[in-house]
Design a protein around this nucleic acid. Structure first.
Length: 831
RNA sequence: GCCGGGGUGGCGAAACUGGCAGACGCACAGGACUUAAAAUCCUGAGAGGGUAACCCCCUCGUGCGGGUUCGAUUCCCGCCCCCGGCACCA
C-alpha cells in the first residue's frame, strides 16, 4: 500500500497502468445490448517522439472515452500508426538506416509515451499501415476500384530532377530546386494512377450540409476545395478551319463582350497552331515558358499576366465577329476546357490583359438605371444588371439572361449548360519505396492486369540501398519487377510505383472495428456495430485532404455494399496547437516540450489535467510550466482532502443522508456537491466544455477545504464529506485516472473505477435556501437583496424598493415600472 | 480579393436563453505556520475616484461608432484590427 498523505503520482502511474494492462481493461467486443461509442483520434505518423502538442489530441480523446465509459457506453478507443511515408525514406537516403527499422523503432518509443500518459487504448487492435496485413487491403480495395473504373491511368506532370534523375515530391522541391543537389527542378509527363474522386464531387459537396457536428471552418474549406461552378460550355468556330474551340464560362450573359479568346499553354491546339505559325520553335518555347511558370511561379508569388497572339481567329457565335486567339499564362489547362473567352469589360483579369495588349473592351451589361459604361472601360457587374449591346437579349436582367442564353446555345447546338468542379481526380502514384505497392501488372499481350486476390499482398521487397537517384526504387529489384502475367502466363512487368500514403489513412478507422481479419479488410457486421466514428479529433491540417479522401472511401465501401452509411465521422473536433514562446513546437526551433520529462516531475495526471483546463480544446494555447504546476497543486489538494476525511468517511455507517438534520455548513457543502454534479454533467455532456467542468470541480474542492476549517458539524459530517469526495473522484477520473483510481480504492472500492457510475444529481439537495437578487435602478446595479426562493413577486418588489441603497436613487422620483425576472433580478425604472 | 474564426484584467480564460462582467486558474501582494526557507493554509486585487476610517459609496469599463431594450460581452447597422484557409478556377 502506498503511503497516504504524500501525493506521489509517479508510483500511482506505474501501479494503475500495470493494472489496466493486466486486466485488459479497455479491450471491447460488440455487444448489441449496450449503446456503442466509437472515439478516435487521428492516428500518428511515427516521427520518433511525441511532444505535448501531439499528445494534447490523445488526452482529449481519452477524456471523452473515459467519460463515455462512465456513462455506460461500450467504448471503442483504438490506436495505430500511419507508418508509410517520405520522411522515413528521406532519412534512409541520408543515413542508410532502412525505413522499416527506423519506423518500427519509432513506433515502439511513441507507444511507450502514450502508455505512460495512461491513454485508455484497446491496444489489442493496434495497427501499422506499413505491415502487409494492413496494406494488402489497400491493394484489395485498389483492384476493386480498378474493376469499377474508379482507378484509372493517364499521363500527368511530376517534378523531375535532371541530375539525380528522379521524381521529386512537392516537399522535396525547395524554392524550385532539388532538396538534395540544388538543381533547378523541371516538369516531366509520366503515366500515373488516379482515383476518380470527382465521381462523388456533387455528393461530397451536398452531404457536407448534413455534417452539423463538424466545425464550420472545415466544411468551408472542403466546399472551396470541391469548388462547384454552374455555367456553360460554348463552341467558337475557328476562322478558316473546320474546327472549333470550346470554352467554359459562368457568364454566358456577357458573351457579346467576348472580344478575344485565350488558350492555356497546355491546350491541345497550341501544337497545331505552332506548326502553322511562321516560327514554330519560338511559338512552342513561349508556351513552354508559361507552363513552367505556372507551377514554380505560384510558390514565389504573383506572376504577371502574359500572352501571345497565335495568328488565328475564332468567330464569336453571338456577334459573328472574328476575335483573335491568344495563349495566356493565367489560363489553366486542367480547369474547364483549358480555353476561355476574354470579356475585358466585365472581368478584371481579362481587362488587365486587354489593356496590356491593346485589345478592344466592349461593355454589354449595365446598371438598370443611369448611364451605360462607355466602351474601353471596366464595369464591375452587380446582381440587378441588365444587358445591352447584346442583340435580341438586350434589356434582359443578367441572371435571367444566364438561363435564356444557355438554352439558346443548346437550341443552336453550339453549347450546353454544365457544372464544373475545381476538385480533380486524386493522383496516387508515387515513385517511392516506402509505401503500398500498386497491385498491377503490365503485360505486353493483355495490357494492364490486376494482381488476383489470392496473390495479395504484393509485398514490399527489401531494398538494401537508398540513393535517392534514378527511377522508382522498386524498379531496381528484378525479382520484384519480372513476373508472369496472371492472364496469359507470359512474361510481364510489375508496376513499380507505390501509393500515396493518404490511401492508407482513408479507411483505417474501419479496420479498427476488425483489426485482425485476414479474409477481408473488415467484417461488415462488425463495422455496422461500431461505425461511424462518433467522435473524431485531430489537427486542422487534415481539414481537406485526409477528411475528404476518407469521405470518398466511405462512399466507395458503401457502393461495394460493405458499409451502411456514407459519412464516416459524426462529430469532428479540430484541436488547437500548443505553442511554446509564441511558436509552433518543432525540433528545429528547439522549443519542444517532452511529455515524459513533465510526467517525471508532476505525474501524468497533472499533465492531462493541465491540457484540459488551460483552454477549450479547439483553441491554440501557449504552454506554461507554471500552469502545469497549478494542476499538480490542485491534484495534491484533492489528495489531501480525501486523505483527511478517509478514516471517518469509510467508518461512517451506510445509508442515505438525512438532509433536514444537517448543520447549515453541511447543507451548504451538500448543495455545492450537487450543484457541481449538475454543472459538470451539463458542461461535459451538453456544452462540451471540459475547462469549465474542471473549474466547477475546483470550486467544490475549495468548498471542501472551507468546510474542514470552520464547519459546524453534526454526526453526519463524514457522510456529507464522503458524498462530496466520492462524487469528485468519479467526475475527475476521466481527467486524472491514476490518482482517482487510487483514491477510489482508498475509499474502500475494490472493483475499480471501471465499475463506477456517474454520480446522481439530487435536485432537493442542490436547492438554494436563500437567493441573492440584484436590484437595478435605471439599468444600474444599486443593491442586492437576500430573500427566500419561494418569495412572491409583490413581496420581492416591496423589499427591493425599501432597500436603502435603492431608496437613495429613487427618492424624489417616480417609479414608472418594476421588472422582475424570477429568481434572477429586479429592475426598477424611475424618471 | 473571397471564405472562416476571433478581439473581455498583468496572463490563460468564464459569463448557459438579453439579467450582478471577470467564475476557475496562473503570476503578483499581504498574513499564518517555521529558527529560516520551501511546502501548505488564509486573505486581497478590472481602472479611477470619494470618505479621518470602516461597513461602504460613486464614475468608467468586454476593439471603435451608432441603434433596439427597464437592462447588451450577448441582438441589429456601420467600421477598425488580429489569426487561419483559399486565391488568376473563367
Amino acid at each position: 500500500m502506498i503511503t497516504v498523505a504524500e501525493y506521489h503520482p509517479q508510483e500511482l502511474d506505474r501501479k494503475w497502468q500495470q493494472h489496466w494492462a493486466d486486466t485488459q481493461a479497455f479491450e471491447v467486443t460488440e455487444d448489441p445490448s449496450k449503446p456503442k461509442f466509437y472515439c478516435l483520434e487521428m492516428f500518428a505518423y511515427p516521427s520518433g517522439h511525441a511532444h505535448v502538442g501531439h499528445v494534447r489530441n490523445y488526452i482529449i480523446g481519452d477524456v471523452v472515452s473515459r467519460l463515455k465509459r462512465l456513462q455506460g457506453f461500450n467504448v471503442l478507443h483504438p490506436f495505430g500508426w500511419d507508418a508509410f511515408g517520405l520522411p522515413a525514406e528521406n532519412a534512409a537516403i541520408k543515413n542508410g538506416i532502412h525505413p522499416e527499422t527506423s519506423t518500427l523503432g519509432n513506433i515502439a518509443h511513441m507507444k511507450g509515451q502514450l502508455q505512460r500518459l495512461g491513454i485508455s487504448y484497446a491496444w489489442g487492435r493496434e495497427l501499422a499501415t506499413c505491415l502487409p496485413d494492413y496494406y494488402r487491403w489497400n491493394q484489395w480495395l485498389f483492384t476493386r476500384m480498378f474493376e469499377r473504373g474508379l482507378a484509372y491511368r493517364r499521363r500527368s506532370t511530376v517534378n523531375w530532377c535532371p541530375v539525380d534523375n528522379t521524381v521529386l515530391a512537392n516537399e522535396q522541391v525547395i524554392e524550385g530546386a532539388c532538396w538534395r543537389c540544388g538543381t533547378q527542378v523541371t516538369q516531366k509527363d509520366l503515366e500515373q494512377w488516379f482515383l476518380k474522386i470527382t465521381h462523388y464531387a456533387d455528393d461530397l459537396l451536398h452531404a457536407a450540409e448534413g455534417l452539423d457536428k463538424w466545425p464550420e471552418k472545415v466544411l468551408t474549406m472542403q466546399r472551396n476545395w470541391i469548388g462547384r461552378s454552374e455555367g456553360a460550355r460554348v463552341r467558337f468556330p475557328i476562322q478558316g478551319a473546320n474546327d472549333s474551340i470550346e470554352v467554359f464560362t459562368t457568364r454566358i450573359d456577357t458573351i457579346f463582350g467576348a472580344t478575344f479568346m485565350m488558350l492555356a499553354p497546355e491546350h491541345g491546339l497550341v501544337n497545331s497552331f505552332a506548326k502553322e505559325s511562321s516560327d514554330e520553335k519560338a511559338f512552342l518555347e513561349k508556351a513552354q515558358r508559361f507552363r513552367s511558370q505556372d507551377r514554380s511561379g505560384r510558390l514565389t508569388g504573383e506572376v504577371a499576366k502574359e500572352g501571345f497572339f497565335t495568328g488565328r481567329f475564332a468567330i464569336n457565335p453571338y456577334t459573328n465577329l472574328p476575335i483573335p486567339i491568344w495563349v495566356a499564362n493565367y489560363v489553366l489547362g486542367e480547369y474547364g476546357t483549358g480555353a476561355v473567352m476574354g470579356v475585358p469589360a466585365h472581368d478584371e483579369r481579362d481587362f488587365d490583359f486587354a489593356k496590356k495588349y491593346d485589345l478592344p473592351v466592349v461593355p454589354v451589361v449595365r446598371p438598370p438605371s443611369g448611364d451605360a459604361p462607355p466602351p474601353g472601360t471596366f464595369y464591375e457587374t452587380a446582381d440587378d444588371d441588365v444587358l445591352f449591346n447584346s442583340g435580341k437579349f438586350d434589356g434582359l436582367r443578367a441572371n435571367e439572361a444566364l438561363k435564356v442564353m444557355t438554352k439558346d446555345a443548346e437550341q443552336r447546338g453550339i453549347g450546353k449548360g454544365t457544372v464544373q468542379f475545381r476538385l480533380k481526380d486524386w493522383g496516387i502514384s508515387r515513385q517511392r519505396y516506402w509505401g503500398t505497392p500498386i497491385p498491377m501488372i503490365h503485360c505486353p499481350i493483355d495490357g494492364i492486369v490486376a494482381v488476383p486476390d489470392d496473390q495479395l499482398p504484393v509485398e514490399l521487397p527489401k531494398v538494401a540501398e537508398f540513393t535517392g537517384r534514378g527511377d522508382s526504387p522498386l524498379a531496381s529489384v528484378p525479382e520484384f519487377v519480372n513476373v508472369k502475367c496472371p492472364k496469359c502466363g507470359g512474361p510481364a512487368r510489375r508496376e513499380t510505383d507505390t501509393m500515396d500514403t493518404f490511401v492508407d489513412s482513408s479507411w483505417y478507422f474501419y479496420r479498427f472495428a476488425d483489426a485482425h481479419n485476414d479474409q477481408l479488410p473488415f467484417d461488415p457486421k462488425k463495422v455496422a456495430y461500431w461505425a461511424p466514428v462518433d467522435f473524431y479529433s485531430g489537427g486542422i491540417e487534415h481539414a481537406i485532404l485526409h477528411l475528404i479522401y476518407s469521405r470518398f472511401f466511405s462512399r466507395v465501401f458503401h457502393d461495394l455494399g460493405m458499409v451502411d452509411h456514407k459519412e464516416p465521422f459524426r462529430h469532428l473536433l479540430t484541436q488547437g496547437m500548443v505553442l511554446k514562446d509564441g511558436a509552433v513546437m518543432s525540433k528545429s526551433k528547439g522549443n519542444v516540450v517532452d511529455p515524459d520529462s513533465m510526467i517525471q516531475k508532476y505525474g501524468s495526471d497533472a499533465l492531462r489535467l493541465y491540457v484540459m483546463f488551460v483552454a477549450p480544446p479547439e483553441k491554440e494555447v501557449e504552454w506554461t510550466d507554471s500552469g502545469l504546476e497549478g494542476s499538480f497543486r490542485f491534484l495534491s489538494r484533492v489528495w489531501r482532502a480525501a486523505d483527511q476525511w478517509r478514516a471517518d468517511a469509510v467508518a461512517a455507517p451506510a445509508g442515505p443522508i438525512a438532509h433536514a438534520s444537517l448543520s447549515a455548513s453541511e447543507r451548504a457543502l451538500r448543495r455545492k456537491t450537487h450543484d457541481t454534479i449538475r454543472r459538470v454533467t451539463q458542461d461535459i455532456d451538453v456544452r462540451q466544455q471540459m475547462n469549465t467542468a474542471l473549474s466547477a470541480m475546483m470550486e467544490l474542492v475549495n468548498e471542501l477545504y472551507a468546510f474542514g476549517e470552520k464547519g459546524e458539524r453534526s454526526a453526519q459530517a463524514p457522510k456529507v464529506a464522503r458524498e462530496a469526495i466520492e462524487s469528485l473522484i468519479v467526475m475527475l477520473s476521466p481527467f486524472a485516472p491514476h490518482t482517482m483510481e487510487e483514491l477510489w480504492e482508498m475509499y474502500g472500492h475494490r472493483d475499480g473505477l471501471i465499475a463506477a457510475r456517474w454520480p446522481a444529481f439530487d435536485a432537493e439537495a442542490a436547492k438554494a435556501e436563500e437567493l441573492e437578487i440584484p436590484v437595478q435602478v435605471n439599468g444600474k446595479l444599486r443593491s442586492v437583496v437576500r430573500v427566500a426562493p419561494t418569495i412572491a413577486d409583490a413581496e420581492l418588489e416591496k423589499i427591493a424598493l425599501a432597500d436603502p441603497n435603492v431608496q437613495a436613487h429613487t427618492t424624489g422620483k417616480t417609479v414608472k415600472k418594476v421588472v422582475i425576472v424570477k429568481g434572477r433580478l429586479v429592475s426598477v425604472v424611475v424618471a
